[in-house]
Simulated assay, not measured.
Amino acid sequence: MDNRINEIRRIIRALRVSMCEAEFIMHEQINRDEDCTFVAEEIMKMRAVMSGLVQERTRLGDNEPILVHSLFIPRRPPTPPRIRVAKRRLEPPQRERA
């Protein structure tokens, strides 16, 4: 049974990587205004397979998280934190009384 859990975890890791790559391809196709239905259908199939594997893994008693190296590449660099400046109120100049 332990071998089956390890095999499921390995398949889930590989499936996650494939899904990330397919999503990247789909986003590129969308950006080029191309038809992405084939890739989207493949992603849906991968999600269905993933769901079945996760259910089987849970049935076998494995609840530990599966770590996958992130393939996420930010689209724009992170913005630096803003420096807050206290607001000053403008007041009319004071008239001197003679």
Rank of each mutant, 00 (worst) to 15 (best):
I12G: 00
I66R: 04
V39R: 00
V17D: 05
N3L: 12
I11K: 10
A98N: 05
E28M: 11
R84H: 13
R32A: 12
H69A: 14
E64D: 14
D33W: 02
A98D: 07
N3R: 13
P65A: 04
L60W: 05
V39H: 00
T79Q: 12
C20A: 14
M46C: 01
L71V: 03
A48W: 03
R16M: 09
S18Y: 03
D2G: 10
M19E: 08
A48D: 10
E96F: 11
R76G: 00
P92N: 11
E56P: 01
R76N: 11
P80K: 12
R10L: 11
I5C: 01
R97L: 09
M44K: 12
L90P: 00
H27I: 04
R10M: 13
P80D: 05
Q29E: 10
R4M: 09
V49F: 06
M50T: 00
M1C: 08
E28L: 10
Q29T: 03
L71P: 00
D33T: 05
S18G: 07
V85D: 06
N3K: 13
C36G: 02
E64W: 03
A22K: 15
Q55C: 09
N6G: 10
F38A: 13
E91C: 07
A40G: 06
N63F: 15
Q94F: 12
E56T: 06
H27D: 13
A48M: 08
R89Y: 10
N31P: 00
R88Y: 12
T79K: 14
N6H: 14
V49S: 06
A86R: 15
E23W: 00
Q29M: 15
R32V: 01
R84V: 11
I30Q: 07
N63K: 15
